[in-house]
Design a binder for these strands. Structure first.
Lengths: 147, 147
DNA sequence: AGCAAAAAGCAACATAGTTGCAAAATCTTG
DNA sequence: CAAGATTTTGCAACTATGTTGCTTTTTGCT
């Protein structure tokens, strides 16, 4: 085992995730996936650039995130402050088809965004004529850890 | 009556809205409010800059929108594509306290965002420990006019 | 090890948003 | 309605955020 590695499983998980998605295993992809795995909450592009940016070009971070979204490894979470956040998808997300029918929670104290995987988005009764294809729910408040 | 004016009521409504909010009545504010009144859907900063931008400085548009949000004249709608949209508030929004407990609808065809004022956001049952303060619901699909 | 394909890095550019300050418009009050 | 105080605007300069094309490096494969 070469160097510091919080959990040895991470590296294996990362490699298999990338291979399953037909992406070659590169240092930046491993590093960025590692950040997602160890962070729990969602990350914005800026977060990632700050945490890993010393080592990678800005453009690489953009392209990596883009590739991950396309392959269904991460999904985007819209926020009110105009900064998209990204979070790991559950296993049942595949390329192009995201199944993130869960609610997102933004904590006003710690400013973290969490996927509440067990809380499914409710059905919304729309006025006549409107057809819903997808429902995004963002709940804001105070999270479990901040009370 | 000086010039073209789709609906004469607009100018009155605009003036009273601004006065009620303790904002002085200036040309850019009147113009931008006019855009909101005649458009029905929500507008992004870019939309406004394009529609009114010939006449006003970019900075003025930023500051005007910011003032309107602070005073409770308009509210922001988060979108998935990292471009905040703005829409007029109902009358019961006051400075600082937005009461936009309604659902927003983004149409994939015409790319317009509408406030569904009659569709209230549902209660979300959260896991133990989480406290909700606000719920944002964004429904994506096809709108009434695009079918 | 060697080759083709993919990804990273670099530079240059495009767009979006912010700040400080001087000039202009608006509001206020006599 | 004029004059001064106050807001607001426009300008310039700057920072941050994203994008594109191209060359070099890394990866995957045999």
């Amino acid at each position: 085992m070469p160097a510091k590695d919080t959990l040895p499983d991470f590296e294996e998980k990362i490699a298999s995730l990338l291979k399953k998605s037909h992406l070659s295993v590169t240092e930046s992809r491993r590093k960025i996936l590692h950040l997602f795995l160890e962070h729990a909450g969602a990350l914005s592009h800026g977060d990632i650039e700050r945490k890993a940016g010393e080592k990678f070009d800005r453009v690489t971070v953009y392209r990596t995130l883009q590739a991950f979204v396309e392959k269904g490894i991460i999904h985007t979470i819209p926020t009110a402050d105009n900064s998209i956040r990204y979070a790991l998808c559950k296993d049942d997300c595949s390329a192009g088809h995201h199944h993130d029918h869960h609610v997102h929670f933004l904590c006003h104290r710690c400013n973290n965004t969490y996927c509440l995987d067990d809380v499914v988005t409710p059905d919304i009764k729309l006025p006549r004529g409107y057809v819903a294809e997808q429902v995004e729910v963002l709940v804001e408040g105070v999270c479990k850890n901040c009370r």
